[in-house]
C-alpha cells in the first residue's frame, strides 16, 4: 500500500522533488520561508500555513522571500519565466489577485500569443482558494472562473493529495503559465501518494464514481461533498456518476459529455459564485452539445451571488453542502421522471 501523506505534504514533496530534479525551478513569495532579514529563525514559517516549510534549507538560494509586493514579485516570476527558469510563485490568498492581476492577465497569459508564438512562460502561481476558515470576504474566495476565463492560462484545482502532487509536478514541467489553486480546507486531508515522481495530465477529469442515473460534475473540495451526497443517494437507489474536473482549463469536455450522454442528467457543483462561473459554463456546454441526451433540467449547486461572509452561521450557509447537492439531484430526478 502506498504510504499516506497529507495534501499539504504532497505539495511540499512535489516542490522538493522537482527542485532536486531541475535546477531551474525556484520558489518566490511572501514568507515562503519567513524570517528574511529578521534576527530569529530563517524558514520561520515556510509559507503562512507551512506548505513550503523545510525547502529553504534544502535548496539554498532558491526559496526566496519577497517584500509584500504582489505586482513586484509575481511580475518578477513572470519575467524570470521568460528567461529559461521555472518559477513557482506563491500568491498567499487568491483574493490578493486584485493586487497583481495585470502581471497574470496582461503579461504571462498573453506573451505567447502577442509575440507570435516566440515566448515560453513556464510560470506556476500557487494560491490558496476557498471558504471555510471563517476568514471572511477577502481571504476565502474561489476565483477559478476568473482564471479559467483568460486564454493563455491553465487552471488546476486538485481535490486529493495524489492529484495535488501529480498535478503540481505537471504544472512545473508545463511550458505555459499555470494557476495552481490549493483549497485551504484540504491541506490536512490524508491520502495515498506514491513516493516516486509522477504527473497527472491536464484536461483529464477523474471518474470518482461510476453511475447510471445522474452526473455530478465538480472540482476541488466540492468533490468530497459530491461523493458524500452520492453515497447517501445510493442508499436511496439513485446512482450518481461523479466527475472531478481536476483542471478547469483545459476542461475535459469529452468526459462531461460522455457521462451526460450516458446518464441524461446533470448537476454541476461549484464553490464559486454563480454568475459567469464554471457551473454556468458547464451547464451551457451540456445544453449546447448534449441537449438530446438530457432527460431533465440541469441543476447548479453554487455559492450565492454574495461575498463570503464571516460569521459561521452565514459561511456555513454560503458554502454548498451535501444536503444541497442531494436536494438538487432529487429535483432533477423528480423533474425528469414526471416528464417521462
Amino acid at each position: 500500500m502506498a504510504r499516506k501523506i497529507s495534501y499539504q505534504q504532497a505539495i511540499n514533496e512535489a516542490l522538493a522533488q522537482e527542485m532536486r530534479r531541475d535546477s531551474t525551478v525556484f520558489i518566490i513569495g511572501e514568507d515562503v520561508a519567513g524570517g528574511a532579514g529578521a534576527p530569529g529563525e530563517q524558514d520561520a514559517w515556510g509559507g503562512v500555513l507551512g506548505v513550503t516549510k523545510g525547502l529553504y534549507h534544502q535548496f539554498p538560494g532558491r526559496v526566496l522571500d519577497a517584500p509584500l509586493s504582489e505586482i513586484g514579485y509575481v511580475g518578477a516570476a513572470v519575467g524570470a519565466a521568460t528567461q529559461g527558469l521555472r518559477p513557482v510563485c506563491e500568491l498567499m490568498f487568491v483574493d490578493f489577485a486584485g493586487c497583481c492581476l495585470d502581471q497574470i492577465l496582461n503579461q504571462a497569459a498573453k506573451f505567447r500569443y502577442m509575440f507570435g508564438g516566440k515566448a515560453v512562460t513556464p510560470l506556476v502561481m500557487r494560491t490558496m482558494v476557498g471558504a471555510g476558515l471563517r476568514a471572511a470576504a477577502q481571504h476565502s474566495q474561489m476565483l477559478t472562473s476568473l482564471w479559467t476565463h483568460i486564454p493563455g492560462l491553465k487552471v488546476v484545482c486538485p481535490s486529493s493529495p495524489y492529484d495535488a502532487k501529480g498535478l503540481l509536478i505537471q504544472a512545473i514541467r508545463d511550458n505555459d503559465p499555470v494557476i495552481f489553486c490549493e483549497h485551504k480546507l484540504l491541506y490536512s486531508m490524508q491520502g495515498e501518494v506514491p513516493e516516486e515522481l509522477y504527473t497527472v495530465p491536464f484536461g483529464e477529469a477523474n471518474y470518482l464514481r461510476d453511475g447510471d442515473d445522474i452526473t455530478l460534475v465538480t472540482y476541488g473540495r466540492m468533490v468530497h461533498l459530491a461523493m458524500e451526497a452520492a453515497n447517501n443517494l445510493a442508499r436511496q437507489g439513485i446512482d450518481c456518476e461523479v466527475l472531478d474536473l481536476r483542471t478547469t482549463s483545459p476542461l475535459d469536455e469529452d468526459s462531461i459529455l460522455e457521462s451526460v450522454e450516458k446518464t441524461g442528467r446533470l448537476v454541476v457543483i461549484d464553490e464559486a459564485n454563480p454568475r459567469c462561473s464554471l457551473a454556468t459554463d458547464i451547464s451551457a456546454l451540456v445544453a449546447q452539445k448534449a441537449f438530446a441526451a438530457l432527460k431533465g433540467p440541469i441543476e447548479m449547486v453554487t455559492a450565492p451571488h454574495t461575498p463570503v461572509p464571516f460569521s459561521d452561521a452565514l459561511e456555513d450557509l454560503y458554502i454548498p453542502d451535501a444536503a444541497k447537492i442531494e436536494a438538487a439531484v432529487r429535483k432533477v430526478m423528480d423533474a425528469s421522471r414526471s416528464a417521462a
Partner: peptide, 30 residues
C-alpha cells in the same frame, strides 16, 4: 518583442515592464 535579442516586449500596460525586468535580473542572478 524578440526574446532572442533580449527584447522582452513593448508593453501596452503602463509600468508593467518594471517587475518583468526585475524578473529577468533575478533570473540572471540565479
Amino acid at each position: 518583442a524578440d526574446l532572442s535579442k533580449g527584447m522582452l516586449g513593448a508593453n501596452g500596460i503602463v509600468g508593467a515592464g518594471a517587475p518583468l525586468v526585475a524578473g529577468s535580473a533575478l533570473a540572471a542572478k540565479l
